[in-house]
Design a protein around this nucleic acid. Structure first.
Length: 579
RNA sequence: GCGCCCUUAGCUCAGUUGGAUAGAGCAACGGCCUUCUAAGCCGUGGGUCGAAGGUUCGACUCCUUCAGGGCGCGCCA
């Protein structure tokens, strides 16, 4: 409908140009908005106000000119001029009902699959080897996975890239410590607590000189491809990722072993890459190190920013790895768009790495590189959660707590849930709540980690949405043989609900373009709220309800449940038939 | 010192490419279960959108300055 109004108005603007009412070269953007207050119709445009200047007329005059040019149709029942010159459009209820019926008969619920599919690399989760995932990892993991699902739903080819921290000088220390543990007892069960493992390794490194010497030796050997060190390294990677996969499975994250593309993947590219940068006169030697000067990052005095790509001792840095990684994703994976989900501290670093990759010609024209940045997780003291020195909350513990709180809530509720379903309900509600707590915010600001905050089940939460869904299933159960039928909109609650359905396509596209899953959260939450009001006001399975009204309302229920389910699934959250 | 990001109700957050009276949830208070699941619905109170200028018919939104907070800055990742 929005598109139709847009087409009509664009046509009118063209006509104005032909009639020389406005200059030919004026670039007028016709904008249609969804009105907040239904007194102002269903859609509105500010076109008349935009044209006031070029046409040198009062907005109201222009508005009436426009209104007179709008052809009559049985879709738009009324067009009004209001306020300073807004034009308000009122859509007929019959047409609205027809749109909802079209959504119901579409397996994509009115969301159009893109006609320009892109290959999108999404870099997310990125845990570190030999460390357990901590609560702050949830942001990248959960938001990244939702964006993966949204883009796939729209028909894009998505390549998941789990850019794990599997390389660096700390591996000498870790290998040496793994060796020590294996010598001490045959089994490597000790690794079940990775957090302690890392801490202990570090302690040995700092206090035991003999150990430290060995560790430094192992770094060199590992980097030169020593078989024993590689085997030990691989063992550390595997142990870590098996544990992380359990978390992914619990959280319904679509990452698998196949998606692991760690830092080590790019190692063979680093040396030739720096040589290439030198050949292209981008990298120069400076105080023994190889650096790139970036004019585009100059300070206000014009001094270019210096970025080191190779150390004095010949070693490479993570900027080098990220340039190589970008090159790989463009050249080998054929990416049209790359989205990195990492916290905001990485912003400058990413921008500089990408700038170098572009200057070196590794990024084809038109390829979009985006940083899906988010703020850091802070402790109650306002200081960031440290990962290096322990003291963080493990993600596993958060998930366990979520489940125990969900179990407690269910035990208090007066429902007749059979025991075999209870466990599923607990898990689905708990994981939904945890994920939604992160997904529903788009803030790039830091936020304070708080148990109660992440584990609520009321208001704008996943359980509320799951509850709305299961209520609808309950209606269908009770309706028995009665089936959804022709939609006839009569009450304000029905109309408000139907209008929300029609927005689904726009919302999903908006969320995809802005890399903002919270837009879908807000939408589904509003939809669930509108359904709840409809549910209170419009009886369905009651004796006094006529058959045709019942069929119509069941159709509205069907649309609501389908969109809630699809919307939540796009966020990586499951629904429940009962709860 | 240089640079990036942020500031909306007591708390957590929304607020479409600038639009009509800035919205939810939590917390507080008051109603609603013999009626399709009360994880719900309805109502009340709560705001100098960090501050000041500027652009505009119109600014939470765009520009400038300032204050406050966070983060980053040549050999860690």
């Amino acid at each position: 409908m929005k598109q139709k109004i847009q087409d009509i108005l664009t046509g009118i603007v063209e006509q104005f140009k032909k009639d020389n009412l406005i200059p030919q070269d004026s670039n007028v953007r016709v904008m249609i908005e969804n009105t907040k207050d239904k007194k102002n119709g269903d859609y509105a445009t500010n076109l008349a106000m935009l044209l006031a200047k070029p046409m040198k007329k009062k907005p109201q005059e222009i508005a009436s000119l426009i209104v007179n040019s709008i052809p009559v149709s049985n879709e738009i029942t009324k067009v009004e001029i209001a306020g300073p010159g807004f034009i308000n459009f009122f859509v007929s209820k019959n047409y609205l009902a027809a749109q909802v019926e079209a959504i119901l008969s579409d397996d994509h619920l009115g969301v159009k699959v893109t006609d320009k599919p892109e290959t999108v690399v999404i870099d997310y989760s990125s845990p570190n080897v030999a460390k357990e995932m901590a609560v702050h990892h949830i942001r990248s993991t959960v938001i990244g996975d939702a964006v993966v699902r949204i883009l796939e739903f729209l028909g894009h080819k998505v390549i998941r890239a789990n850019h794990i921290g599997d390389w660096g000088t700390q591996f000498g220390m870790l290998i040496a410590y793994l060796e020590k543990k294996e010598n001490e007892n045959a089994s490597n069960l000790e690794l079940s607590d990775l957090e302690a493992f890392y801490r202990e390794a570090k302690k040995c490194y700092e206090s035991d000189e003999e150990f430290a010497v060995k560790a430094r030796g192992y770094v060199v050997k590992l980097q030169s491809g020593d078989e024993y060190c590689l085997k030990m390294w691989k063992k550390l990677v595997n142990i870590t990722m098996v544990q992380n996969q359990e978390i992914y499975n619990r959280l319904n994250i679509s990452l698998t072993e196949k998606d692991i593309m760690g830092e080590s993947l790019y190692n063979p590219m680093l040396k030739p890459l720096v040589e290439d940068l030198v050949n292209k006169n981008l990298a120069v030697k400076d105080d023994g190190a190889m650096v790139v000067y970036l004019k585009s990052f100059a300070d206000k005095d014009g001094n270019p920013r210096c970025v080191i790509v190779q150390k004095k001792d010949g070693g490479f840095l993570y900027t080098t790895t990220d340039i190589a990684c970008t090159k790989y994703r463009c050249e080998t994976l054929g990416a049209n768009r790359i989205i990195c989900f990492a916290d905001s501290r990485q912003h400058e670093h990413l921008m500089m790495s990408w700038e170098i990759a572009r200057l070196a010609g590794y990024v084809p024209e038109g390829v979009v590189l985006e940083h899906g940045a988010f703020g850091m997780m802070l402790g109650k003291d306002g200081k960031p959660f440290k990962t290096r020195d322990g003291g963080t909350v493990k993600l596993k513990d958060l998930l366990n707590e979520a489940e125990s709180r969900a179990a407690e809530l269910i035990s208090q509720r007066n429902n007749d849930l059979p025991d075999n379903l209870k466990d599923e309900v607990i898990k689905t509600v708990a994981m939904g709540a945890v994920k939604y707590a992160d997904l529903s915010k788009n803030r790039t600001t830091d936020y304070v980690f708080d148990w109660d905050n992440m584990l609520t089940f009321e208001g704008n939460t996943a359980p509320y949405l799951q509850y709305a869904y299961s209520r609808i299933q309950s209606i269908f159960k009770k309706a028995g043989e009665a089936k959804p039928g022709k939609i006839v909109i009569t009450t304000p609650e029905e109309e408000a609900l139907a209008q929300q359905f029609v927005k689904f396509n726009e919302v999903v596209n908006n969320a995809a373009n802005k890399i903002a899953p919270h837009i879908i959260c807000t939408y589904v939450y509003e939809l669930a709220g509108l359904f709840m009001r409809f549910y209170e006001a419009c009886p369905i399975n009651k004796d006094e309800v006529a058959e045709d009204v019942k069929a119509s309302r069941l159709a509205l229920c069907k649309a609501a449940s389908s969109i809630i389910k699809t919307g939540l699934n796009m966020l990586g959250i499951n629904v429940l038939d009962r709860m």
